[in-house]
Amino acid sequence: MSNRYEPVTSPSLILRIRDADDSGSWEIFATIYSPVVRTYCRRRGIQEADIDDLVQDVMTTLTRAIRSFEYDPARGRFRAWFGTVTANRVNSWFSQRSLRAKEVSLEEVGGNEHFVGSDSDSLWDSVFCQQVLNAACQRIRLRVESITWSSFELTWLHNIPAAEAAAKLAIPVHTVYVNKSRVLKLLEAEVRLLADEFPVMDSGDTRLSSSDANS
């Protein structure tokens, strides 16, 4: 039972999508990260009709750039690199349209030297975390029993006390904790895989990727 769940992405989703034959991994990647780009664009004030093109551009850029990806935990987060690629493409779009972003100025987002995924850009981090966690939850939910998920959902996602959740689900309190703990472990593993919580590019790679994003 405890080994019933097998993550589909091992060791790294980002590494796996470099394999042209691994269409399944690419599909997962696109399913999870297209909404991240889309939501980010929305919050930068871009209209829906333009967002489709931007999402496609960013995903194409990522596909190209990831081919040169080399795993190195010392080089920073995939999130930051991804954010930079996206922000550069969005900034380029704004420049072309001579429009101003509404909630986040271009100056705030910065040029190629600035990582959007840094602490200075809460917008990107917020969007990224929301989308990845939502995606991970959806995937884990399919892999656990209903009562297990409900225990986790009530206590962790909805902040309902365990005793109350137990009464609601008609199970002992300790079962609620066991279920919650189990889902959290699965969720953490899934988020780590989906978010690729290890670094991607060095500064040279980033500049190359940013250039790609602006092209």
Partner: peptide
């Protein structure tokens, strides 16, 4: 036991949501 079940890694994600 509540504290024992928490995931420090997921706290950032949880806060975002």
């Amino acid at each position: 036991i509540e504290q024992l079940t928490e995931s420090e890694f997921l706290s950032e994600y949880r806060n975002a949501v």
